[in-house]
Design a protein around this nucleic acid. Sequence first.
DNA 1: TTAATAAGTTAGACTTGACTAACAAATATA
DNA 2: TATATTTGTTAGTCAAGTCTAACTTATTAA
Lengths: 223, 223
Amino acid sequence: MISQSIENYLKVIFNQATASDEVNTSVIAHAMEVSLPSVNSMVKKLANLGLLEYEKYKPLKITKKGKYEAALIIRKHRLTEMFLVEKMGFGWEEVHEIAEQLEHVQSNDFFDRMDEILGYPRFDPHGSPIPDKKGIITPSVYRRLSDCAPGETVILKALNYTSDDFLVYLNSKELALGLTLSVHQIEPFDKNMTVSYPQHQHEVLSGMVCDKLMVKKIAGIGK
Amino acid sequence: MISQSIENYLKVIFNQATASDEVNTSVIAHAMEVSLPSVNSMVKKLANLGLLEYEKYKPLKITKKGKYEAALIIRKHRLTEMFLVEKMGFGWEEVHEIAEQLEHVQSNDFFDRMDEILGYPRFDPHGSPIPDKKGIITPSVYRRLSDCAPGETVILKALNYTSDDFLVYLNSKELALGLTLSVHQIEPFDKNMTVSYPQHQHEVLSGMVCDKLMVKKIAGIGK
DNA sequence: TTAATAAGTTAGACTTGACTAACAAATATA
DNA sequence: TATATTTGTTAGTCAAGTCTAACTTATTAA
């Protein structure tokens, strides 16, 4: 049986991996708020379990098996978030912490029942795709707001990062999925963007935030 | 923060404590399937946390604080069982294992929401009382089947023990809450009871089983 | 292209929660 | 009441998962 710690490492590695399935040790250490040696020793365990390819001083590479196991954990997390919002009346900014705990429950029945009750949803309350029982993820067809050009008008469709702080921030700015945003300006130096959306004219969003907002274009020049 | 291990010990101690709030070390070791020294060292921790009174070679005594904390854990467990049965369509014999895991979730909101959705139930699917938010338990007004006399007719109202094996056993005998049972005979030697109930004439139940079935009298001689 | 810095590794220590072996106290039995 | 048995305790070990300090390799900048 895979321990909760290993599940947490695997999830972070999956989320932080690049297009070539690679991650650096220090990225994991930073994301998990643990020391580098802790990551190093854990990473060797993951490699022994066949979840990761490990060679001294080389970047880590997540294996097919690793991606499969990670997808199943993420499935549990996102189904839980959806269930909490849709069936238990929680706000989307409240559910992340609870789902972090529930995702470690060992019972496929429990999550499959949630899935059924929810009607087999493909996306969670933050717009992130929910992997199916086989670990297959419907790819997101959206772009990052930070990749948009001035003059474009887009709809906010999903987030590619969730934490309580971030969701509380979005709520404070009255940013919600489904909103229409117009991009006015991008500051070349720090990538700050000036945007407008209902009730908010010329709001400035940091590059970091724009990187995490996934949008769909509806008008203007650009891709 | 109290660890999951400590929560598990506390729950067992609470459940195994006698009317005078006392338990023996070996009873805990047996119930938890761990060694005596493991219990001994844990018990000292619980005592340091003020959950237990510990004196060398004396029986352990659970404190007021210990009972309060235990009741809150049991509340989480039983609310979860009720939610799984009532809102997620599980059978009463399937929910114990899942509830064992969910009871450790740290979020009062999560369980209070369940409570609200269920309409503040006082008893779980096995008939055991659900402690309220203050840890107060509505006492059961039922007697053990093992305390009944031949000639009595009773209704099965609750169980004072739950495990998957036990629930599967009850299902196999078609014993369910609400059934009417007639007591025919008690074997003085091993306390085996001969009883009848719908579809089952002169079924023999062991003393161990009768000890765990809580009933309400509807006819016959006796208390 | 060499020196400085960043990233990754090893060794060794600590905590939690388990264990066995050996011993002490309490209880039961002859 | 003396002995046997059961129950409880102590000491020491182990694995998981964390840490710091010291070291090595890789990368960046002078």
